[in-house]
Design a protein around this nucleic acid. Structure first.
Lengths: 110, 110
DNA sequence: TATGATGTTTGATCATCATAGAATTTTGAA
DNA sequence: TTCAAAATTCTATGATGATCAAACATCATA
């Protein structure tokens, strides 16, 4: 936990990686939570998975360019890179229901 | 090639599967081509991959709900399920640059 | 009924991924 | 300095995934 963590520059955020990151429901939920509640400390996230697994998901989110991780003492604050994503892929966060009204999982459609 | 091919109902199209399907650049390009040129015959698609690999990608696209495959004699006509996708996940196809101006790969952003 | 054209399916291989437990790193506080 | 808390990294494993070559199925037509 020495050097700085990798974050891609805005212009280097790739659609391939972003879509792959978003294809996992837990990662989408983390993104949604960051959007809804603002920056979070990792420990405040709770999912039925091991800590190391969550850590892996956070790494995928960070390296894809979806969020930033800021080291604050012994904790880490994660935030959605909303502006960068909106600039690079307008409408995407809305479309995947990260930012969005999106009440229940199954939006009536058919 | 006997029975009918599986296509999920509009309401059963899952975001997980759609995003996974779209996370591959070849599959995104197939979707973009269908949108730009209308329904295509598979053989008109040309990528530097084996036929069987392309067939696999088309299956992923079809089973995710992104396109339909219609058997026409010895060929198959594939089409983008634009309306279904728009109804289920508004703005998604635009955001992932399937339907969109999207001139070059690297949209100036940073 | 052969034959060719169009795709798919099968079988195999190598890579990537989600997952978890254990060990490790870092920091803050007793 | 010792210890607890927070989170990552390491290591391993089972599941998917992308890929290709070869075999197969279907249809149209000579």
């Amino acid at each position: 936990m020495r050097g700085e963590l990798f974050h891609p520059d805005r212009g280097d955020i790739s659609l391939d990686k972003v879509l792959h990151a978003l294809s996992d429901p837990i990662r989408r939920d983390v993104a949604r939570t960051m959007h809804r509640d603002g920056p979070r400390v990792c420990g405040q996230l709770s999912y039925p998975i091991a800590k190391s697994t969550l850590s892996h998901h956070l790494k995928v989110l960070r390296e894809s360019g979806l969020m930033t991780t800021e080291v604050r003492g012994t904790t880490r604050v994660i935030s959605l890179r909303r502006d960068d994503l909106e600039a690079r892929f307008p409408g995407l966060l809305d479309a995947v229901q990260v930012t969005a009204p999106a009440p229940e999982e199954a939006s009536r459609a058919s």
